[in-house]
Design a protein around this nucleic acid. Structure first.
Ligand SMILES: Nc1ccn([C@H]2C[C@H](O)[C@@H](COP(=O)(O)OP(=O)(O)OP(=O)(O)O)O2)c(=O)n1
Ligand SMILES: [Mg+2]
Ligand SMILES: [Mg+2]
Length: 887
DNA sequence: ATCCTCCCCTAC
DNA sequence: TAAGGTAGGGGAGGAT
């Protein structure tokens, strides 16, 4: 292909160069007229089409086949949830959008022939002058040293003036193009630095896709629902019990004497160690052992300064507010250093000026005083060599899912706290299995580390408080047992701030009373604590500082409110813009209410409004700054989940408040007084049984793009040929277990949205079904007097003994087996799997096997293999394990 | 006493 | 640049 051939068509190019949203309709027009004619359009997603002249970007499935044909290992990435990209580079930096590899067939052939991987050198980056800052930015992007060097070397030759391409007229000023070495268009970037506020059309979705807090909120809620649903599942089986003792032995960690916990209860708390960092480090192993933080900021580079920013004014307001609270709490503000989150931040443009928040930091970073939630600027002062890694939201989802499923294989007495954390009631579990807490902890933590590649810590105690404090003690990557004999000494030294529920305000209040540690607080009477902090809080604290906690674990959660708010990027000019945004929020709230199957009566509008004294330009870019918070609510006569009713109410509240839209900095809608919608019908049957009986029908429902959304990163999973399996059941495509069936549980929708992360290890290919079809014969059943009954109800109505007799008759009949009979026995066995009937299933299968081996002819052997495969598939789905047979 | 509304605080 | 969301517990103070 010559360069000339690769020139882009004007239309195609303009489509890219324009602002997407504005041109959607035009695009679609072009699409329909062009597609038929020239076959140049590869894909259309959400109205954005990719035009690449002379080359069609393959679809995900085509890519899979393509790669399979070439025998290459490939990796797929998804960007913006709409564009699929594949590369045979294992670590293509799609995330930062510095480079996009789209694999062409020729490249694959070529690279295989020349025995090399595609490399950065295979791409050229063209740019117009406006993109220069962007390129500088890329240069200082944190990457591995290796990559960085390479990039620096290449940068000069990469940057070509846009006019070499003779196309800049169709681009907005601030765009640049990425093309490959043959000039074929790879991507167009926009370096437009104009601020993107809530007024912009795609603001909400972009914000949500980048907001860590949004992600962990939604994910956490999912797991609460998930536990609710699992606990309602009557056919649930705890598979981890099966080989627990063997695993304990293999870790060689039998404990010598038993432990005593208070109240004779064993409560476990488990929490991933620096969750976001651990997950992120899987992709950046070279940074292990260094101070690392997960943040949007790349660290180190100075930003451009916005005009009108006066950080010190805003910071001073925060300090004053805090000082006011301290005074109220009885402290003498003049003698006390007020510490706030905004201390040690430099000015904008300063090396230490970044106000990007650190979501999580490694323990090496914590050693320097950095902690979660800190601003990047302040953190860099504490540790200038702090490394940053980007967010990996899919990774968190997958690891969290694995964590929960792992624990759920032992027990469902789980209180979900958040996506990386839960309480587990272990008393019965450990008693029944006769396992010591130490052995359990060791095996469990190793299991999780092995499955996820991330470390976690567990703490054990007689109540939730003790368990929690024990976890803190255990971290990082450890376990701690707060047994009855240790509690008194242990509690004495605990900082009040470390008690759950005691945050900055409470601890400062207590400090003003002269107490910093639990030991010290124990001298206060219940009455005086209650007097200072209120009845409940006082009593709670009185208990807590003695290591007591009466609150039981709550396995089943009942939702009390649904809300959506955005306090970032809110910069309205007009009331209409505000209402328009409220409409989007209403729709968001509606969709969440539908997910949770609730309606609500009380609607609250929350506004954050710039405080009078606060500067108009906020310290944090597009942040909310120093604000007054205003809430106003209305109670309806009838519960609703209709976005339009919500919108109408919320607008009316907004009008009553009469706030200048220009001053709004945050806006949210909350719905309370919830009523559960009736969905009894949907919950009538356990998910597992239904799942199994519907599995074949269900399978087709997987959308192709979902299949690759979360490529499992389980270290054990082979990067297998992704070729789609033919009609045989493919449980490995099911998103792991415990199973969740679509039409059944409320969590299905949630899980679909957030938890599509199977970590199933064993690939399972069995095309036998096709072969078996060949032996299918006209329908005629087992030669048995009860044929009718069987046909009608399957084998399910039969007792296990009866089935065994039927089987015996079948084997002895001397006729070749028929597909329908085989299917029937399989569904009977699947049913046993659902009904915790593994023991009997095992016996039945052994019987089945023995008899067939006795018959010893090819067809029957095939039947045996087929049945075994199917049973093992079902086992994988339900238990994530296969049955073990001795040979 | 108990409930309601509007906060504040905390956790992740 | 930056992506400061979301749910629950509970206190203050007024209405019942
Ligand atoms: N202010 C915060 C606190 C937490 N998180 C996110 C990132 C964390 O990784 C995750 C879990 O929070 P944890 O409190 O469990 O903290 P870590 O897991 O990071 O560390 P630790 O080892 O103390 O559990 O929640 C966040 O985004 N912002
Ligand atoms: Mg954690
Ligand atoms: Mg946690």
């Amino acid at each position: 292909m010559s360069r000339q051939d690769e020139k882009f068509s004007d239309n195609g190019f303009e489509a890219w160069g324009g602002y997407m949203q504005a041109k959607i309709s035009k695009l679609e027009e072009q699409f329909s007229s062009k597609a038929s004619k020239e076959n140049q359009v590869s894909n259309i997603f959400k109205g954005i089409s990719i035009f690449v002249n002379g080359y069609t970007v393959p679809t995900a499935d085509e890519l899979k086949d393509l790669m399979a044909q070439h025998g290459g290992v490939y990796h797929t990435y998804q960007r913006h949830e709409d564009i699929v990209i594949a590369s045979n580079l294992p670590d293509t930096k799609v995330k930062n959008m510095t480079l996009t590899n789209i694999v062409k067939p020729e490249w694959i052939t070529e690279s295989i022939a020349s025995n090399r991987l595609l490399d950065y050198k295979d791409f050229l980056l063209y740019s117009n002058k406006h993109s220069q800052p962007k390129l500088k930015f890329q240069k200082s992007t944190r990457m591995s040293n290796d990559t960085k060097k390479k990039e620096e070397l290449l940068t000069d030759s990469w940057v070509k003036p846009m006019n070499n391409l003779d196309i800049e007229r169709s681009l907005p000023d601030s765009s640049y193009v990425i093309v490959d070495s043959t000039n074929s268009l790879i991507d167009i970037k926009n370096t437009d630095t104009s601020t993107k506020t809530a007024v912009d059309p795609n603001f909400i979705s972009e914000f949500y896709s980048n907001s860590r807090l949004h992600h962990i909120s939604q994910l956490g809620a999912c797991f609460k629902q998930y536990i609710n649903d699992l606990r309602e599942e009557s056919n649930y089986i705890f598979t981890a019990h099966i080989n627990l003792r063997d695993r304990i032995k293999s870790y060689n960690c039998h404990s010598s004497f038993s432990m005593n916990f208070e109240y004779n209860k064993v409560i476990m708390h488990i929490d991933m160690d620096c969750f976001f960092v651990s997950v992120g480090l899987r992709k950046h192993p070279e940074l292990k052992g260094k101070p690392v933080a997960v943040t949007h900021s790349k660290g180190g580079q100075s930003q451009t300064k916005r005009s009108g920013v006066n950080r010190s004014v805003e910071f001073e307001l925060y300090r004053q507010k805090q000082a006011g609270k301290l005074t109220k709490a009885g402290l003498d503000v003049n003698n006390i250093e007020i510490s706030t989150r905004i201390d040690n931040i430099g000015d904008e443009g300063n090396k230490f000026g970044s106000m990007s928040e650190i979501a999580s930091c490694s323990y090496e970073a914590r050693a320097k005083g950095i902690c979660n939630g800190m601003f990047m600027g302040a953190a860099l002062r504490l540790c200038p060599e702090l490394q940053t890694i980007p967010y990996d939201f899919d990774g968190y989802k997958e690891v969290a899912y694995t964590l929960y499923n792992t624990i759920a294989q032992y027990t469902l007495d789980i209180e979900a706290v958040s996506c990386d954390e839960m309480y587990v009631h272990c008393t019965d579990l450990l008693t029944n299995l006769d396992v010591s807490p130490e052995d359990f902890a060791t095996v469990l933590r190793e299991e999780i580390r092995e499955k996820t590649g991330c470390p976690c810590s567990t703490g054990f105690g007689g109540n939730r408080l003790q368990a929690r404090l024990a976890t803190k003690q255990a971290k990082p990557n450890g376990q701690f047992f707060l047994t009855a004999n240790l509690i008194e000494d242990f509690m004495f030294d605990i900082n009040l701030k470390d008690l759950p529920g005691v945050g900055r305000q409470t601890s400062q209040k207590l400090e003003s009373l002269g107490h910093q540690t639990c030991g010290s607080l124990q001298s206060l009477t219940l009455a005086s604590l209650q007097q200072h902090l209120g009845n409940k809080t006082g009593a709670q604290l009185f208990d807590q500082c003695r290591g007591r906690d009466r609150n039981p674990l709550t396995y089943h959660t009942v939702r009390k409110s649904v809300s959506a708010e955005v306090n970032y990027g809110i910069r309205f000019e007009t009331n209409d813009q505000c209402y328009h945004f409220l409409n989007q929020l209403s729709i968001e709230v509606q969709s969440r209410m539908q997910q949770f199957k609730v309606k609500g009566k009380c609607i609250t509008l929350k506004l954050m409004v710039r405080a009078e004294e606060a500067p108009v330009e906020t310290a944090k870019y597009l942040g909310h700054g120093f604000c007054d918070v205003i809430n106003k609510s209305v109670t309806l006569l009838e519960a609703t989940n209709d976005s339009q009713i919500i919108l109408q109410e919320v607008i009316s509240l907004c009008k009553k408040l009469n706030i200048d839209p220009k001053e709004m900095r945050g806006i949210g809608i909350q719905v309370t007084k919830l009523e559960q919608l009736n969905d009894k019908l949907q919950k009538s049957k356990g998910a597992i049984s239904k799942f199994l009986t519907n599995v074949t029908k269900d399978e087709r429902k997987d959308k192709p793009n979902l299949c690759m959304k979360n490529e499992p990163v389980s270290p054990k999973r082979p990067l297998a040929s992704p070729r789609r399996k033919s009609p045989s059941r493919s449980p490995n495509k099911r998103k792991g277990r415990p199973p969740k069936n679509s039409k059944l549980s409320t969590s299905k929708t949630l899980m679909d949205k957030f938890l599509q992360c199977p970590a199933i290890k064993n690939e399972f290919k069995s095309p036998i079904k096709n072969k078996s079809k060949d032996i299918e014969e006209p329908k005629k059943n087992i030669e048995n007097i009860e044929t009718e009954r069987i046909v009608k109800s399957g084998l399910l109505g039969f007792s296990w003994k009866e089935v065994r007799e039927l089987l015996r008759a079948w084997f002895d009949s001397g006729q070749p087996p028929k597909q329908c009979d085989v299917d029937m026995i399989i569904s009977y066995m699947e049913n046993m799997i659902c009904n915790r009937n593994i023991d009997k299933l095992y016996i039945l299968l052994n019987f089945f096997r023995r008899r067939i081996q006795e018959i010893n002819n090819e067809i029957w052997n095939e039947v045996l293999n087929y049945v075994l495969e199917q049973v093992q598939s079902a086992m994988l789905v339900v238990y994530n394990k296969r049955l073990y047979f001795e040979d």
